[in-house]
Design a protein around this nucleic acid. Sequence first.
DNA 1: AATGAATGAGGATTCATTCAT
DNA 2: GATGAATGAATCCTCATTCAT
Lengths: 188, 188, 188, 188
Amino acid sequence: MPKLGMEPIRRAALVKATIAEVGDVGSLQVTVGQIARRAGMSTALAHHYFGGKDQIFLAAMRHILSEFKAEVLAELAQAKPDARAEAIIRACFAQSCFAPRAISAWMTFYVMAQTNSEALRLWRLYQCRLRSNLCHALRPVARDPKVAAAVLSALIDGLYLRAALNDPEAGEVATQRALTVLHLLCDR
Amino acid sequence: MPKLGMEPIRRAALVKATIAEVGDVGSLQVTVGQIARRAGMSTALAHHYFGGKDQIFLAAMRHILSEFKAEVLAELAQAKPDARAEAIIRACFAQSCFAPRAISAWMTFYVMAQTNSEALRLWRLYQCRLRSNLCHALRPVARDPKVAAAVLSALIDGLYLRAALNDPEAGEVATQRALTVLHLLCDR
Amino acid sequence: MPKLGMEPIRRAALVKATIAEVGDVGSLQVTVGQIARRAGMSTALAHHYFGGKDQIFLAAMRHILSEFKAEVLAELAQAKPDARAEAIIRACFAQSCFAPRAISAWMTFYVMAQTNSEALRLWRLYQCRLRSNLCHALRPVARDPKVAAAVLSALIDGLYLRAALNDPEAGEVATQRALTVLHLLCDR
Amino acid sequence: MPKLGMEPIRRAALVKATIAEVGDVGSLQVTVGQIARRAGMSTALAHHYFGGKDQIFLAAMRHILSEFKAEVLAELAQAKPDARAEAIIRACFAQSCFAPRAISAWMTFYVMAQTNSEALRLWRLYQCRLRSNLCHALRPVARDPKVAAAVLSALIDGLYLRAALNDPEAGEVATQRALTVLHLLCDR
DNA sequence: AATGAATGAGGATTCATTCAT
DNA sequence: GATGAATGAATCCTCATTCAT
């Protein structure tokens, strides 16, 4: 076992374990001990690398956000100019982002944003980016791109919420619902 | 100070205090002690009347739901037949339902639904009712009332979410956004 | 409902409920609330009549003791002079004293005697009486009546203990075991 | 002060403290706090090593049982073939087993067996072993070894009971009483 | 780098008991 | 005579965090 360069490995393991645990339990009520055990290390080490529980959570939230960002960028990269909005929507409901566990963690971190200012900042960043991406993508096609972007991002969050609560109608048709509204917003 | 029939008074005080406290703190991490103090009684009495923390929370959730229901019914009662959908939307964003504290409590209880089955049941009940109300109201005006109801209810939740996170753009324009989509769904 | 003379009725009901509850639960860990509910009254009334939990327990213990005493006396009254020891033993294992619930309460009160001096006094009283009765009964038949009485009373308690713990061999054959020793002690 | 391998040390300290505390107080009503303080550590550590109050108690009960077993085996090892039964009896009333504190703890754990199934299992195990040992030892000398073993083991428990309640006659003469019966059972 | 050891602070819950009516 | 109301004190248990090794 290497003695150097363990830090990134450990941190990644903890972040992954945090998302999994929070997703499974469905609340921030998970203990550092659970996370550390799942990541295969002692709680002391978890503290050593992150400094505290909140920072572990924040790192996990950042990870989800960056994954989400990557998903969107990848989808956008291969989208035709006038299908960019649809690409973003598809990215939002891609397998990796819409898995029950991921959604559950996602929604749970939302709650954290009510309490923790750094979490709030991250959430706002995500919102901003999403809306800006949407706005840009909608400019060529929608009547009022700004409004359309606001509507769509709110709708996406609402659909996420349902998925987190296992609404039977959520998973399969979420994309359809979003696309329906997208088309309405673009309809001349 | 009356000595008989305190139960309903105490219960109401606890429910009110719970919503206020959860709304302020923005998490279920509030203690029974905080709630009881806010309601002006000992923790033991809170337990005496409700049996446990979860049941206090559930009672608070039920209260929010019933208030919401009343709001919708009141708004519907005085709406013209072809403005019923708009009435529901206006009810959703009425002052009493859209106060920051109420929204925060609302969203927080959502999280509880991931863990607590009774909370989930209540959430589903609310969803069902909202969608059914919307569907009925949309029948005369929307092309596909069922889809329209699904879209609108998801959108409403998404807008709530923003309000809970103090998105500056949320409060004021939430109604506008929802109405925009409503009109799109009804056009023609 | 009569307003006068309730005291003895209430007290009897509480004593009965205490024995039943302690017997069922198998520990002194029963609450005044449980006892009072079983006796069909409020905890406040239980306190009113007995002054406190300990005194309720002591009253129950006294009741068991007095029942036991009555059983022995009844059995002795109709015993031939040289069968008095056997009569005592039979009284000890009579239905009313050897019912699981009674035994369990009995043993539980033993434990109280380690803590509560009044309970200890009562236990010593019972012991004294039992041994004295046995001694007197054994005088005509046993070689050493005092030793025989000591042995038999210890044996009886040991057999009770087994019954309290539901030793399958306890209930049915307890009397046999005790009589066996009795005869050994009297042989010749 | 060593920093590794504390677990067995702590566990032993807790078991010892539990027996002492339960023995002193004479009831299971001792708190984890009392035990932990007596063992020189925090309650949290006690929970850490045992998981809960019941398990601390059970560990203490197991310890008493294993000590008892060792005592019997030691006594049996140096007994002549036809004095084995006497050796067992002497072991039962040896100093280490018959100290007031030990007896009190012993009896108290008996009570736990009425409530806790694992405690009951342990008690049955002890009973089984004692009776089996006695039976084997009595085979060469008693008329009916099985009955004799049953009688003696019940008698031993009865004598313990007296010791737990500080019957002045118990400690000193318990062995004598048991031996008296032993000889009666073996007398041809 | 890693961890077992250790704890203080806190939280839910229970319960005997008191009091006003 | 009877009870609902009310609580303080106590108890079990949890957990984030620190520290020595």
